[in-house]
Simulated scan of single mutants.
Amino acid sequence: MPKNSFVTCPHCGGETVPKEKVLLDGWTRRGTVLVCAFCGGELPSAESPEATAPAADRKTSALAALLGSEVPEAVKLTASAEERRFCRDCRYYIKHPFLSRCERRQAEVNPMDDCPDFALPDPPAPDATPNH
């Protein structure tokens, strides 16, 4: 486990930096273990699966534990071609840093407006190169 890396303590549940603690038997040193800087609980070794879990998984499972529910599956949003009629995807949309306009209606538009005159833009020509 790299030094100064954050881990989740299995005892207190907080994000902590592991602290090295020397194990002594009288005056004889028996080894070292990593402990939580907050509660002093022993942390799992670097080889254990809970110590190597990605941070996103740990945060999601911590949130699920807090709410008392299971981790939900990722939701995939799909939309048909009829539902994706935004001005920003329209052939007549003019992109400008200060003002977005519709060339067909000659009006100011918001890029996420629904376009009543929606038309797909022409695909770029295969031999077209961008001008730089």
Rank of each mutant, 00 (worst) to 15 (best):
13 G>C: 07
47 E>Y: 00
82 E>W: 00
71 V>N: 03
29 R>A: 13
96 H>G: 14
54 P>V: 08
52 T>I: 05
105 R>M: 04
18 P>M: 09
70 E>V: 11
42 E>Q: 09
23 L>F: 09
124 P>C: 00
128 A>T: 01
50 E>A: 08
24 L>Q: 10
87 C>H: 02
66 L>T: 10
113 D>F: 00
46 A>T: 08
71 V>G: 00
121 P>Y: 01
52 T>C: 05
66 L>N: 08
76 K>L: 10
77 L>N: 13
117 D>K: 01
6 F>L: 12
91 R>Y: 13
1 M>C: 09
82 E>M: 03
34 L>R: 13
16 T>N: 05
55 A>W: 01
52 T>F: 09
90 C>F: 02
12 C>M: 10
43 L>M: 02
57 D>R: 15
91 R>M: 13
106 Q>N: 02
31 G>S: 05
127 D>K: 10
3 K>R: 11
65 A>G: 08
21 K>A: 13
74 A>Y: 05
47 E>S: 10
65 A>I: 06
91 R>N: 11
65 A>E: 11
129 T>E: 14
39 C>K: 09
22 V>C: 05
82 E>P: 07
119 A>T: 10
25 D>C: 13
13 G>L: 11
14 G>T: 06
70 E>Y: 09
11 H>F: 12
69 S>A: 11
36 C>T: 07
32 T>K: 13
75 V>F: 08
33 V>W: 03
117 D>R: 02
44 P>K: 09
117 D>H: 06
20 E>T: 15
25 D>N: 14
123 P>K: 00
81 A>T: 13
45 S>W: 02
18 P>G: 11
34 L>A: 06
14 G>K: 13
26 G>I: 03
84 R>E: 10
123 P>Y: 00
50 E>L: 12
83 E>N: 10
55 A>P: 00
74 A>D: 12
23 L>Y: 07
23 L>Q: 11
43 L>F: 06
98 F>S: 11
83 E>D: 13
18 P>F: 03
98 F>M: 08
19 K>M: 08
15 E>I: 12
91 R>I: 05
103 E>T: 00
44 P>G: 05
46 A>S: 06
128 A>V: 05
89 D>Q: 13
78 T>A: 15
88 R>W: 03
14 G>N: 12
53 A>F: 03
2 P>I: 15
102 C>I: 07
16 T>A: 02
55 A>T: 09
24 L>C: 03
122 D>T: 04
69 S>T: 15
20 E>W: 04
132 H>V: 06
58 R>I: 03
94 I>G: 07
93 Y>V: 00
16 T>L: 00
113 D>H: 01
91 R>P: 06
38 F>E: 04
16 T>Q: 01
11 H>S: 12
42 E>A: 02
68 G>F: 05
99 L>D: 02
122 D>M: 01
48 S>Q: 05
115 C>P: 01
11 H>R: 03
29 R>K: 15
101 R>I: 01
89 D>V: 06
34 L>Y: 12
73 E>M: 04
72 P>Q: 03
132 H>C: 01
84 R>M: 15
78 T>V: 14
121 P>N: 05
119 A>Q: 14
107 A>N: 01
58 R>N: 00
107 A>I: 01
100 S>N: 06
116 P>L: 01
98 F>K: 10
85 R>K: 13
27 W>R: 04
17 V>C: 13
10 P>E: 15
59 K>P: 02
9 C>L: 09
